[in-house]
Design a protein around this nucleic acid. Structure first.
Lengths: 223, 223
DNA sequence: AGCCATGATACTGCATCCATAATTATGAAT
DNA sequence: ATTCATAATTATGGATGCAGTATCATGGCT
Protein backbone atom coordinates (compact mmCIF):
# COMPACT_ATOMS: atom_id res chain seq x y z
CA UNK A 1 0.00 0.00 0.00
CA UNK A 2 2.55 2.63 1.05
CA UNK A 3 0.91 6.05 1.61
CA UNK A 4 -1.07 7.75 -1.14
CA UNK A 5 0.85 8.39 -4.35
CA UNK A 6 -0.40 11.94 -4.19
CA UNK A 7 2.20 12.48 -1.47
CA UNK A 8 4.80 12.90 -4.20
CA UNK A 9 4.74 16.65 -3.84
CA UNK A 10 8.17 17.74 -5.02
CA UNK A 11 10.81 15.08 -4.57
CA UNK A 12 9.42 12.41 -2.32
CA UNK A 13 11.95 11.22 0.23
CA UNK A 14 13.16 7.69 -0.33
CA UNK A 15 11.10 5.04 1.34
CA UNK A 16 13.92 4.02 3.63
CA UNK A 17 14.11 7.60 4.88
CA UNK A 18 10.42 7.71 5.63
CA UNK A 19 10.73 4.43 7.46
CA UNK A 20 13.73 5.68 9.39
CA UNK A 21 11.74 8.70 10.49
CA UNK A 22 8.78 6.61 11.59
CA UNK A 23 11.08 4.35 13.54
CA UNK A 24 12.75 7.32 15.21
CA UNK A 25 9.38 8.59 16.32
CA UNK A 26 8.45 5.23 17.77
CA UNK A 27 11.77 4.88 19.52
CA UNK A 28 11.56 8.35 21.06
CA UNK A 29 8.00 7.59 22.17
CA UNK A 30 9.45 4.47 23.80
CA UNK A 31 6.87 2.50 21.91
CA UNK A 32 9.86 0.41 20.92
CA UNK A 33 11.38 -0.15 24.37
CA UNK A 34 15.07 0.26 25.13
CA UNK A 35 16.97 -2.95 24.64
CA UNK A 36 13.96 -4.38 22.85
CA UNK A 37 14.32 -6.53 19.78
CA UNK A 38 13.17 -5.07 16.50
CA UNK A 39 11.14 -7.57 14.52
CA UNK A 40 11.95 -6.79 10.88
CA UNK A 41 9.26 -9.00 9.43
CA UNK A 42 6.54 -7.74 11.70
CA UNK A 43 7.41 -4.12 10.97
CA UNK A 44 7.64 -4.76 7.24
CA UNK A 45 4.19 -6.31 7.29
CA UNK A 46 2.85 -3.50 9.45
CA UNK A 47 4.20 -0.86 7.09
CA UNK A 48 3.19 -2.86 4.06
CA UNK A 49 6.70 -2.85 2.62
CA UNK A 50 9.45 -5.37 2.07
CA UNK A 51 12.32 -5.93 4.43
CA UNK A 52 14.81 -4.29 2.09
CA UNK A 53 14.06 -0.61 2.73
CA UNK A 54 13.41 -1.43 6.38
CA UNK A 55 16.85 -2.90 6.75
CA UNK A 56 18.38 0.10 5.04
CA UNK A 57 16.58 2.34 7.50
CA UNK A 58 17.98 0.31 10.38
CA UNK A 59 21.50 0.80 9.06
CA UNK A 60 20.92 4.53 9.20
CA UNK A 61 19.51 4.41 12.71
CA UNK A 62 22.46 2.29 13.76
CA UNK A 63 24.95 4.90 12.65
CA UNK A 64 22.90 7.46 14.54
CA UNK A 65 23.31 5.31 17.61
CA UNK A 66 19.61 4.70 18.11
CA UNK A 67 19.82 0.98 17.53
CA UNK A 68 22.58 -1.59 17.67
CA UNK A 69 23.01 -4.23 15.01
CA UNK A 70 24.20 -7.54 16.34
CA UNK A 71 25.48 -9.60 13.41
CA UNK A 72 23.31 -12.61 12.78
CA UNK A 73 21.39 -11.78 15.94
CA UNK A 74 19.18 -8.94 14.84
CA UNK A 75 18.58 -5.34 15.73
CA UNK A 76 17.95 -3.90 19.21
CA UNK A 77 17.02 -0.47 20.47
CA UNK A 78 20.05 1.11 22.10
CA UNK A 79 20.13 1.04 25.87
CA UNK A 80 21.68 4.11 27.46
CA UNK A 81 23.68 3.41 30.57
CA UNK A 82 24.18 6.08 33.20
CA UNK A 83 27.77 6.23 32.00
CA UNK A 84 26.63 6.85 28.44
CA UNK A 85 24.58 9.80 29.61
CA UNK A 86 27.55 11.10 31.54
CA UNK A 87 29.59 10.94 28.37
CA UNK A 88 27.07 12.55 26.05
CA UNK A 89 25.96 15.47 28.18
CA UNK A 90 29.35 17.09 28.71
CA UNK A 91 29.96 16.94 24.97
CA UNK A 92 26.53 18.34 24.33
CA UNK A 93 27.25 21.14 26.78
CA UNK A 94 30.51 21.85 25.02
CA UNK A 95 28.89 22.02 21.60
CA UNK A 96 25.87 24.03 22.68
CA UNK A 97 28.15 26.37 24.57
CA UNK A 98 30.08 26.95 21.41
CA UNK A 99 26.88 27.63 19.49
CA UNK A 100 25.79 30.22 22.03
CA UNK A 101 29.21 31.82 21.89
CA UNK A 102 29.18 32.08 18.13
CA UNK A 103 25.58 33.22 18.09
CA UNK A 104 26.43 36.02 20.49
CA UNK A 105 29.09 37.16 18.05
CA UNK A 106 26.95 37.04 14.97
CA UNK A 107 23.41 37.81 16.05
CA UNK A 108 21.82 40.73 14.24
CA UNK A 109 19.06 42.77 15.80
CA UNK A 110 16.59 40.81 13.68
CA UNK A 111 18.01 37.57 15.09
CA UNK A 112 17.72 38.93 18.57
CA UNK A 113 14.10 39.90 17.99
CA UNK A 114 13.39 36.37 16.86
CA UNK A 115 15.03 34.88 19.93
CA UNK A 116 13.09 37.25 22.14
CA UNK A 117 9.84 36.14 20.56
CA UNK A 118 10.62 32.49 21.18
CA UNK A 119 11.70 33.27 24.70
CA UNK A 120 8.39 34.98 25.34
CA UNK A 121 6.68 31.72 24.45
CA UNK A 122 8.91 29.92 26.90
CA UNK A 123 7.79 32.36 29.58
CA UNK A 124 4.17 31.78 28.68
CA UNK A 125 4.33 28.01 28.70
CA UNK A 126 6.33 27.99 31.89
CA UNK A 127 3.68 30.13 33.53
CA UNK A 128 1.04 27.69 32.31
CA UNK A 129 3.25 24.87 33.54
CA UNK A 130 2.92 23.22 30.15
CA UNK A 131 6.00 21.01 29.86
CA UNK A 132 5.20 19.76 26.36
CA UNK A 133 4.88 23.18 24.80
CA UNK A 134 7.82 24.44 26.81
CA UNK A 135 9.87 21.59 25.45
CA UNK A 136 8.82 22.38 21.93
CA UNK A 137 9.61 26.09 22.22
CA UNK A 138 12.88 25.18 23.86
CA UNK A 139 13.80 23.11 20.83
CA UNK A 140 13.03 26.05 18.58
CA UNK A 141 15.14 28.36 20.70
CA UNK A 142 18.15 26.12 20.42
CA UNK A 143 17.52 25.56 16.73
CA UNK A 144 17.40 29.30 16.16
CA UNK A 145 20.69 29.72 17.97
CA UNK A 146 22.26 27.05 15.81
CA UNK A 147 21.10 28.80 12.70
CA UNK A 148 22.46 32.11 13.90
CA UNK A 149 25.77 30.53 14.81
CA UNK A 150 25.97 29.49 11.19
CA UNK A 151 27.96 26.30 11.54
CA UNK A 152 26.02 23.46 9.95
CA UNK A 153 28.47 20.80 11.00
CA UNK A 154 28.28 21.90 14.61
CA UNK A 155 24.50 21.97 14.39
CA UNK A 156 24.49 18.48 12.94
CA UNK A 157 26.50 17.08 15.83
CA UNK A 158 24.17 18.68 18.33
CA UNK A 159 21.12 17.28 16.59
CA UNK A 160 22.66 13.84 16.65
CA UNK A 161 23.54 14.13 20.32
CA UNK A 162 20.01 15.29 21.08
CA UNK A 163 18.63 12.20 19.39
CA UNK A 164 20.75 9.99 21.59
CA UNK A 165 19.65 11.81 24.70
CA UNK A 166 16.04 11.42 23.70
CA UNK A 167 16.48 7.69 24.11
CA UNK A 168 16.15 8.23 27.84
CA UNK A 169 12.71 7.66 29.14
CA UNK A 170 13.21 10.36 31.77
CA UNK A 171 12.19 13.91 31.03
CA UNK A 172 13.84 16.41 33.30
CA UNK A 173 11.28 19.12 32.54
CA UNK A 174 8.74 17.04 34.43
CA UNK A 175 10.81 17.36 37.55
CA UNK A 176 9.24 19.67 40.12
CA UNK A 177 10.77 23.11 39.73
CA UNK A 178 13.00 22.18 36.79
CA UNK A 179 10.81 24.02 34.33
CA UNK A 180 11.16 27.28 36.20
CA UNK A 181 14.83 26.74 36.71
CA UNK A 182 15.31 26.06 33.02
CA UNK A 183 13.43 29.24 32.23
CA UNK A 184 15.60 31.24 34.58
CA UNK A 185 18.70 29.87 32.90
CA UNK A 186 17.30 30.80 29.52
CA UNK A 187 16.80 34.34 30.76
CA UNK A 188 20.44 34.63 31.70
CA UNK A 189 21.48 33.21 28.33
CA UNK A 190 19.31 35.69 26.48
CA UNK A 191 20.76 38.42 28.63
CA UNK A 192 24.30 37.43 27.68
CA UNK A 193 23.29 37.42 24.03
CA UNK A 194 21.81 40.87 24.42
CA UNK A 195 25.07 42.06 25.93
CA UNK A 196 26.84 40.50 22.93
CA UNK A 197 29.15 38.77 25.35
CA UNK A 198 30.22 35.54 23.60
CA UNK A 199 32.20 34.11 26.49
CA UNK A 200 29.40 34.72 28.94
CA UNK A 201 26.74 33.31 26.63
CA UNK A 202 28.84 30.23 26.00
CA UNK A 203 29.51 29.73 29.66
CA UNK A 204 25.87 30.09 30.66
CA UNK A 205 24.68 27.76 27.95
CA UNK A 206 27.27 25.25 29.04
CA UNK A 207 26.03 25.42 32.60
CA UNK A 208 22.45 25.22 31.38
CA UNK A 209 23.10 21.88 29.74
CA UNK A 210 24.95 20.48 32.73
CA UNK A 211 22.10 21.67 34.89
CA UNK A 212 19.79 19.63 32.67
CA UNK A 213 21.89 16.58 33.22
CA UNK A 214 21.81 17.11 36.97
CA UNK A 215 18.02 17.29 36.84
CA UNK A 216 18.01 14.01 34.99
CA UNK A 217 20.16 12.49 37.69
CA UNK A 218 17.67 13.56 40.34
CA UNK A 219 14.92 11.85 38.38
CA UNK A 220 16.97 8.69 38.36
CA UNK A 221 17.07 8.49 42.14
CA UNK A 222 13.47 9.64 42.51
CA UNK A 223 12.40 6.90 40.09
CA UNK B 1 34.44 -14.42 -4.52
CA UNK B 2 34.13 -12.64 -1.19
CA UNK B 3 37.34 -13.23 0.84
CA UNK B 4 38.25 -16.65 2.03
CA UNK B 5 35.80 -18.30 4.42
CA UNK B 6 38.71 -18.86 6.78
CA UNK B 7 38.47 -15.16 7.59
CA UNK B 8 35.64 -15.97 9.97
CA UNK B 9 37.93 -15.65 12.93
CA UNK B 10 35.56 -14.87 15.78
CA UNK B 11 32.49 -12.95 14.63
CA UNK B 12 33.03 -11.93 11.06
CA UNK B 13 31.86 -8.37 10.41
CA UNK B 14 28.79 -8.16 8.24
CA UNK B 15 29.47 -7.94 4.56
CA UNK B 16 28.07 -4.44 4.34
CA UNK B 17 30.57 -3.34 6.98
CA UNK B 18 33.47 -4.82 5.10
CA UNK B 19 32.28 -3.13 1.96
CA UNK B 20 31.87 0.17 3.79
CA UNK B 21 35.44 -0.07 5.03
CA UNK B 22 36.78 -0.83 1.56
CA UNK B 23 34.87 2.10 0.17
CA UNK B 24 36.19 4.40 2.89
CA UNK B 25 39.72 3.40 2.01
CA UNK B 26 39.14 4.10 -1.66
CA UNK B 27 37.50 7.42 -0.91
CA UNK B 28 40.34 8.54 1.36
CA UNK B 29 42.83 7.46 -1.29
CA UNK B 30 40.83 9.67 -3.67
CA UNK B 31 40.60 6.70 -5.95
CA UNK B 32 36.94 7.57 -5.96
CA UNK B 33 37.21 11.28 -6.75
CA UNK B 34 35.30 13.99 -4.91
CA UNK B 35 31.97 14.68 -6.48
CA UNK B 36 32.35 11.53 -8.51
CA UNK B 37 29.44 9.24 -9.16
CA UNK B 38 29.51 5.85 -7.49
CA UNK B 39 28.52 3.10 -9.90
CA UNK B 40 26.68 0.54 -7.79
CA UNK B 41 26.59 -2.12 -10.44
CA UNK B 42 30.23 -1.81 -11.38
CA UNK B 43 31.35 -1.96 -7.75
CA UNK B 44 29.08 -4.91 -7.01
CA UNK B 45 30.57 -6.79 -9.93
CA UNK B 46 34.08 -5.78 -8.93
CA UNK B 47 33.57 -6.98 -5.37
CA UNK B 48 31.71 -10.04 -6.57
CA UNK B 49 28.65 -9.26 -4.48
CA UNK B 50 25.10 -8.17 -5.12
CA UNK B 51 23.94 -4.59 -4.95
CA UNK B 52 22.06 -5.15 -1.69
CA UNK B 53 24.97 -5.10 0.80
CA UNK B 54 26.66 -2.45 -1.30
CA UNK B 55 23.68 -0.17 -1.02
CA UNK B 56 23.53 -0.77 2.71
CA UNK B 57 27.17 0.22 2.96
CA UNK B 58 26.43 3.42 1.06
CA UNK B 59 23.70 4.29 3.55
CA UNK B 60 26.25 4.05 6.33
CA UNK B 61 28.78 6.16 4.47
CA UNK B 62 26.08 8.71 3.79
CA UNK B 63 25.34 9.16 7.47
CA UNK B 64 29.07 9.53 8.03
CA UNK B 65 29.02 12.31 5.51
CA UNK B 66 31.43 10.67 3.11
CA UNK B 67 28.90 10.36 0.31
CA UNK B 68 25.63 12.05 -0.55
CA UNK B 69 22.60 10.15 -1.73
CA UNK B 70 20.56 11.93 -4.34
CA UNK B 71 17.16 10.27 -4.61
CA UNK B 72 16.68 8.55 -7.92
CA UNK B 73 19.95 10.03 -9.06
CA UNK B 74 22.50 7.86 -7.35
CA UNK B 75 25.35 8.25 -4.93
CA UNK B 76 28.20 10.74 -5.10
CA UNK B 77 31.38 11.23 -3.11
CA UNK B 78 30.98 14.27 -0.87
CA UNK B 79 32.67 17.43 -2.06
CA UNK B 80 34.12 19.53 0.72
CA UNK B 81 33.86 23.24 0.14
CA UNK B 82 36.25 25.65 1.80
CA UNK B 83 33.34 26.67 3.97
CA UNK B 84 32.77 23.06 5.04
CA UNK B 85 36.39 22.83 6.14
CA UNK B 86 36.01 26.07 8.05
CA UNK B 87 33.04 24.59 9.84
CA UNK B 88 34.56 21.23 10.68
CA UNK B 89 37.96 22.32 11.92
CA UNK B 90 36.82 24.63 14.72
CA UNK B 91 34.55 21.88 16.01
CA UNK B 92 37.37 19.39 15.73
CA UNK B 93 39.61 21.77 17.64
CA UNK B 94 36.96 22.13 20.31
CA UNK B 95 36.55 18.38 20.72
CA UNK B 96 40.24 17.56 20.61
CA UNK B 97 40.90 20.35 23.06
CA UNK B 98 38.43 18.79 25.43
CA UNK B 99 40.07 15.42 25.05
CA UNK B 100 43.46 16.87 25.91
CA UNK B 101 41.97 18.64 28.89
CA UNK B 102 40.37 15.50 30.24
CA UNK B 103 43.44 13.42 29.47
CA UNK B 104 45.58 15.86 31.47
CA UNK B 105 43.25 15.30 34.41
CA UNK B 106 43.20 11.54 34.23
CA UNK B 107 46.54 10.43 32.86
CA UNK B 108 48.41 8.00 35.07
CA UNK B 109 52.17 7.70 34.97
CA UNK B 110 51.74 4.62 32.80
CA UNK B 111 49.64 6.62 30.39
CA UNK B 112 52.23 9.33 30.31
CA UNK B 113 54.96 6.80 29.58
CA UNK B 114 52.92 5.52 26.67
CA UNK B 115 52.43 9.01 25.29
CA UNK B 116 56.11 9.72 25.67
CA UNK B 117 56.94 6.62 23.67
CA UNK B 118 54.67 7.64 20.84
CA UNK B 119 56.02 11.14 20.93
CA UNK B 120 59.54 9.77 20.59
CA UNK B 121 58.44 8.15 17.34
CA UNK B 122 57.09 11.46 16.19
CA UNK B 123 60.46 13.01 16.84
CA UNK B 124 62.17 10.23 14.93
CA UNK B 125 59.94 10.40 11.88
CA UNK B 126 60.07 14.17 11.85
CA UNK B 127 63.86 14.00 11.87
CA UNK B 128 63.69 11.56 8.97
CA UNK B 129 61.19 13.86 7.31
CA UNK B 130 58.87 10.90 6.80
CA UNK B 131 55.40 12.42 6.53
CA UNK B 132 53.60 9.09 6.18
CA UNK B 133 55.01 7.58 9.33
CA UNK B 134 54.66 10.86 11.16
CA UNK B 135 51.02 10.94 10.19
CA UNK B 136 50.52 7.41 11.41
CA UNK B 137 52.23 8.04 14.76
CA UNK B 138 50.27 11.25 15.07
CA UNK B 139 47.04 9.29 14.71
CA UNK B 140 48.15 6.94 17.47
CA UNK B 141 49.03 9.84 19.73
CA UNK B 142 45.59 11.34 19.39
CA UNK B 143 43.94 7.92 19.74
CA UNK B 144 45.88 7.32 22.94
CA UNK B 145 44.73 10.65 24.32
CA UNK B 146 41.14 9.78 23.49
CA UNK B 147 41.45 6.52 25.33
CA UNK B 148 42.96 8.22 28.36
CA UNK B 149 40.24 10.87 28.34
CA UNK B 150 37.80 8.00 28.67
CA UNK B 151 34.81 9.47 26.86
CA UNK B 152 33.78 7.11 24.08
CA UNK B 153 31.13 9.41 22.71
CA UNK B 154 33.58 12.26 22.45
CA UNK B 155 36.08 9.96 20.79
CA UNK B 156 33.44 8.82 18.33
CA UNK B 157 32.67 12.36 17.24
CA UNK B 158 36.33 13.09 16.71
CA UNK B 159 36.78 9.97 14.65
CA UNK B 160 33.83 10.97 12.49
CA UNK B 161 35.15 14.49 12.05
CA UNK B 162 38.53 13.12 11.12
CA UNK B 163 36.93 11.01 8.41
CA UNK B 164 35.29 14.06 6.93
CA UNK B 165 38.54 15.98 6.97
CA UNK B 166 40.29 13.12 5.24
CA UNK B 167 38.09 13.79 2.25
CA UNK B 168 40.37 16.67 1.41
CA UNK B 169 43.01 15.82 -1.10
CA UNK B 170 45.39 18.22 0.57
CA UNK B 171 47.76 16.97 3.26
CA UNK B 172 49.12 19.74 5.44
CA UNK B 173 52.02 17.62 6.68
CA UNK B 174 53.47 17.79 3.19
CA UNK B 175 53.74 21.52 3.47
CA UNK B 176 57.30 22.73 3.86
CA UNK B 177 58.00 23.23 7.54
CA UNK B 178 54.59 22.05 8.72
CA UNK B 179 55.95 18.75 9.95
CA UNK B 180 58.43 20.45 12.23
CA UNK B 181 55.85 22.93 13.38
CA UNK B 182 53.42 20.15 14.17
CA UNK B 183 56.12 18.40 16.13
CA UNK B 184 56.86 21.54 18.10
CA UNK B 185 53.22 21.90 18.96
CA UNK B 186 53.10 18.30 20.09
CA UNK B 187 56.00 18.99 22.38
CA UNK B 188 54.14 21.81 24.07
CA UNK B 189 51.05 19.62 24.44
CA UNK B 190 53.04 16.82 26.00
CA UNK B 191 54.61 19.37 28.29
CA UNK B 192 51.21 20.58 29.43
CA UNK B 193 50.16 17.00 30.06
CA UNK B 194 53.28 16.43 32.09
CA UNK B 195 52.46 19.49 34.16
CA UNK B 196 48.99 18.02 34.62
CA UNK B 197 47.54 21.33 33.55
CA UNK B 198 44.18 20.55 31.92
CA UNK B 199 43.41 24.08 30.80
CA UNK B 200 46.80 24.53 29.23
CA UNK B 201 46.73 21.15 27.51
CA UNK B 202 43.28 21.86 26.14
CA UNK B 203 44.27 25.27 24.93
CA UNK B 204 47.42 24.06 23.23
CA UNK B 205 45.63 21.18 21.55
CA UNK B 206 42.98 23.58 20.36
CA UNK B 207 45.60 25.83 18.83
CA UNK B 208 47.34 22.82 17.35
CA UNK B 209 44.24 21.89 15.39
CA UNK B 210 43.61 25.43 14.21
CA UNK B 211 47.23 25.60 13.18
CA UNK B 212 46.60 22.50 11.08
CA UNK B 213 43.71 24.20 9.38
CA UNK B 214 45.84 27.25 8.65
CA UNK B 215 48.45 25.02 7.05
CA UNK B 216 45.74 23.51 4.88
CA UNK B 217 44.71 26.99 3.82
CA UNK B 218 48.26 27.75 2.71
CA UNK B 219 48.23 24.61 0.61
CA UNK B 220 45.04 25.80 -1.04
CA UNK B 221 46.69 28.96 -2.32
CA UNK B 222 49.95 27.21 -3.11
CA UNK B 223 48.06 24.66 -5.19
C1' DA C 1 21.09 26.26 -37.33
C1' DG C 2 19.21 25.81 -32.86
C1' DC C 3 15.59 24.04 -29.80
C1' DC C 4 12.10 21.15 -28.24
C1' DA C 5 9.79 16.73 -28.33
C1' DT C 6 9.85 11.88 -28.38
C1' DG C 7 11.84 7.45 -27.80
C1' DA C 8 15.69 4.35 -26.28
C1' DT C 9 18.76 3.20 -22.63
C1' DA C 10 20.26 2.57 -18.15
C1' DC C 11 20.15 2.96 -13.37
C1' DT C 12 17.82 3.33 -9.00
C1' DG C 13 14.66 1.52 -5.60
C1' DC C 14 11.70 -1.99 -3.91
C1' DA C 15 9.99 -6.75 -3.78
C1' DT C 16 10.72 -11.55 -3.67
C1' DC C 17 13.37 -15.61 -3.08
C1' DC C 18 16.98 -18.54 -1.05
C1' DA C 19 20.85 -20.14 1.92
C1' DT C 20 22.83 -20.12 6.30
C1' DA C 21 23.08 -19.61 11.03
C1' DA C 22 20.85 -19.05 15.52
C1' DT C 23 17.24 -20.26 18.58
C1' DT C 24 13.95 -23.17 20.41
C1' DA C 25 11.74 -27.47 21.14
C1' DT C 26 11.96 -32.32 21.65
C1' DG C 27 13.71 -36.48 23.32
C1' DA C 28 17.08 -39.56 25.27
C1' DA C 29 20.45 -40.71 28.62
C1' DT C 30 22.58 -40.21 33.06
C1' DA D 1 14.52 -34.76 37.28
C1' DT D 2 18.10 -32.52 35.01
C1' DT D 3 21.20 -32.06 31.29
C1' DC D 4 22.91 -32.67 26.93
C1' DA D 5 22.37 -33.82 22.10
C1' DT D 6 19.75 -33.46 18.08
C1' DA D 7 16.12 -31.90 15.04
C1' DA D 8 12.75 -28.31 13.64
C1' DT D 9 11.73 -23.66 13.27
C1' DT D 10 12.62 -19.04 12.52
C1' DA D 11 15.13 -14.97 11.42
C1' DT D 12 19.03 -12.75 9.26
C1' DG D 13 21.91 -11.73 5.27
C1' DG D 14 22.58 -11.86 0.49
C1' DA D 15 21.07 -12.59 -4.47
C1' DT D 16 18.01 -11.90 -8.05
C1' DG D 17 14.22 -9.89 -10.55
C1' DC D 18 11.26 -6.13 -11.93
C1' DA D 19 8.88 -1.61 -12.24
C1' DG D 20 9.47 3.31 -12.48
C1' DT D 21 12.05 7.23 -13.58
C1' DA D 22 16.03 10.01 -14.95
C1' DT D 23 19.39 10.61 -18.57
C1' DC D 24 20.88 10.61 -23.20
C1' DA D 25 20.34 10.37 -28.14
C1' DT D 26 17.88 10.93 -32.26
C1' DG D 27 14.81 13.34 -35.16
C1' DG D 28 11.30 16.81 -36.26
C1' DC D 29 9.97 21.65 -36.00
C1' DT D 30 10.52 26.71 -35.70
Amino acid sequence: MNARPSSKILAAPALYEQVAERLRTRIFAHELPQGGWIDEQALAVEYGISRTPLREALKVLASEGLVVLKPRRGCYVTELSEQDIDEVFPVMALLEGRVAEEAARRATSADFARLTTIHAELEKHAAANNADRFFEANQRFHAALQEIAGNRYLAQLIDDARKVIKLTRRDSLRLEGRLKQSLAEHRTILEALRLKDPALAGQRMHEHLLSGRAALAKLATAG
